[in-house]
Amino acid sequence: AVTGSQTALLLRAFEKDRFPGIAAREELARETGLPESRIQIWFQNRR
């Protein structure tokens, strides 16, 4: 499950760019500790 702090970080990124590229998703994966594929799905679901 995604924690509150991970969600906050993802929401901030989403406000800046609703369609992040692979580099941005990989950076978010490093920052959150989540797999990049999970980040991609999160953005798809959020849109």
Rank of each mutant, 00 (worst) to 15 (best):
A1I: 13
A1L: 12
A1F: 13
A1H: 11
A1E: 14
A1D: 13
A1C: 15
A1G: 12
V2L: 15
V2M: 15
V2F: 15
V2H: 05
V2R: 04
V2S: 04
V2I: 15
V2D: 06
V2P: 11
V2A: 07
T3D: 08
T3L: 07
T3Q: 06
T3C: 07
T3N: 11
T3I: 05
T3F: 06
T3W: 06
T3K: 06
T3E: 05
G4N: 14
G4D: 14
G4W: 10
G4L: 14
S5F: 14
S5G: 10
S5R: 14
Q6V: 12
Q6C: 08
Q6D: 03
Q6K: 05
Q6S: 05
Q6T: 07
Q6N: 06
T7N: 13
T7M: 15
T7W: 15
T7C: 15
T7F: 15
A8M: 11
A8V: 11
A8F: 08
L9R: 08
L9Y: 08
L9M: 12
L9N: 03
L9A: 11
L9F: 09
L10N: 01
L10V: 01
L10K: 02
L10F: 00
L10E: 01
L11H: 05
L11V: 12
L11E: 15
R12T: 07
R12L: 10
R12N: 07
R12Q: 10
A13S: 06
A13M: 07
A13Y: 14
A13R: 02
A13P: 01
A13G: 03
F14H: 00
F14K: 02
F14Y: 12
F14C: 02
F14S: 01
F14Q: 02
F14W: 12
F14E: 01
F14M: 03
E15Y: 11
E15V: 08
E15L: 12
E15P: 02
E15R: 10
K16Y: 09
K16N: 10
K16D: 05
D17A: 05
D17I: 04
D17G: 04
D17N: 14
D17W: 06
R18F: 04
R18K: 12
R18Q: 13
R18Y: 04
R18N: 10
R18D: 05
F19A: 05
F19N: 10
F19T: 05
F19R: 04
F19W: 13
F19M: 05
F19V: 04
F19L: 04
P20V: 03
P20W: 03
G21C: 06
G21S: 14
G21V: 03
G21Q: 07
G21L: 05
G21E: 06
I22P: 14
I22V: 12
I22F: 12
I22T: 10
I22E: 10
I22Y: 11
A23H: 10
A23I: 10
A23D: 10
A23V: 10
A23K: 13
A23M: 10
A24K: 11
A24N: 04
A24F: 07
A24V: 12
A24I: 09
A24D: 08
R25P: 00
R25F: 14
R25A: 04
R25M: 15
E26Y: 09
E26H: 11
E26A: 12
E26P: 01
E26R: 14
E26F: 08
E26N: 11
E27H: 09
E27L: 13
E27F: 09
E27D: 10
E27G: 06
E27K: 14
E27N: 09
E27S: 09
L28V: 03
L28C: 02
L28M: 05
L28A: 00
L28F: 03
L28P: 01
L28T: 01
A29S: 12
A29G: 05
A29Y: 02
A29M: 07
R30V: 07
R30P: 00
R30T: 05
R30Y: 06
R30F: 06
E31V: 14
E31A: 14
E31T: 11
E31G: 04
E31N: 08
E31D: 07
T32A: 04
T32P: 00
T32R: 00
T32N: 00
T32D: 01
T32Y: 02
G33C: 03
G33M: 04
G33L: 03
G33R: 03
G33T: 03
G33N: 05
G33E: 03
L34M: 06
L34W: 10
L34G: 00
L34N: 00
P35A: 09
P35S: 15
P35M: 06
E36R: 04
E36W: 05
E36Q: 09
E36H: 06
E36S: 07
E36A: 11
E36M: 13
S37P: 10
S37K: 10
S37T: 10
S37W: 15
S37Y: 14
R38D: 14
R38Y: 15
R38N: 07
R38K: 11
R38P: 02
R38I: 15
R38M: 15
I39Q: 00
I39E: 00
I39G: 01
I39S: 00
I39C: 03
Q40K: 13
Q40E: 14
Q40T: 09
Q40V: 12
Q40D: 14
Q40R: 14
I41R: 10
I41D: 13
I41F: 09
W42N: 01
W42K: 00
W42M: 01
W42L: 02
W42T: 01
W42I: 00
F43S: 00
F43Y: 04
F43C: 02
F43V: 02
Q44L: 07
Q44N: 08
Q44A: 11
Q44Y: 09
Q44M: 09
Q44D: 09
Q44V: 09
Q44G: 05
Q44E: 15
Q44F: 08
N45M: 12
N45V: 09
N45F: 08
N45W: 14
N45C: 14
N45H: 11
N45K: 11
R46H: 11
R46L: 10
R46Q: 14
R46G: 03
R46P: 00
R46T: 08
R47Y: 04
R47E: 04
R47C: 04
R47M: 07
R47L: 08
R47K: 03
